[in-house]
């Protein structure tokens, strides 16, 4: 991995989350190539292990992109992911990497510009916090 850029992993739910990313692509909007999108059926499938694994592999930040409250296709809503997100954030804090490296976003369905704005803002925030995390050798 080229460590000069901020590496971001976006776990996007297959429904509203991914629709924003597709909309951004359809609209010809651009965002840094160091953003990797991982499509999941629902954010409730993403537990703390996966979030931490992304950091272990060298991600500087992780974004969880899911449906707005009430829009979950599996009626789970944000309950599970919020719990796992809170745990992973505290662990990142304990590790000294900083809680702010993990964010949970709910963007309206199909909001391409909104997604690009959030991603670029997040990258700017990460550039401010601390030097990039060296990947495991």
């Amino acid at each position: 991995m080229n460590k000069s850029a901020i590496h971001l992993v976006v776990f996007a739910c297959n429904w509203d989350g991914l629709s924003c990313i597709e909309e951004a692509a359809r609209g010809g909007l651009t965002y840094p190539a160091s953003v990797r999108v991982v499509r999941v059926s629902c954010l409730s499938r993403v537990h703390q292990g996966l979030m931490l694994k992304a950091f272990e592999l060298g991600a500087d930040g992780v974004m969880l992109l899911g449906c707005e409250p009430g829009n979950c296709q599996y009626d789970i809503d944000a309950g599970l992911v919020t719990r796992e997100y809170e745990k992973a954030r505290i662990v990142l804090g304990l590790l000294g990497l900083g809680k702010e490296r993990l964010v949970l976003c709910h963007i309206p369905r199909g909001d391409g510009p909104g997604f690009v704005r959030r991603v670029t803002d997040f990258i700017k925030e990460l550039e401010q916090v601390r030097p990039a995390i060296p990947a495991r050798a």
Binding site: H47, Q48, G49, L50, L52, K53, F55, E56, V91, G93, L94, L95, G96, L97, I133, P134, R136
Partner: peptide, 24 residues
Amino acid sequence: QCTHGGALQALQHMMAREDLLQDR
């Protein structure tokens, strides 16, 4: 086949980083 989604393995590997400065 890691239990708990591999959270503990990820933690242990991250803890091995030399430049780590924990807030524990």
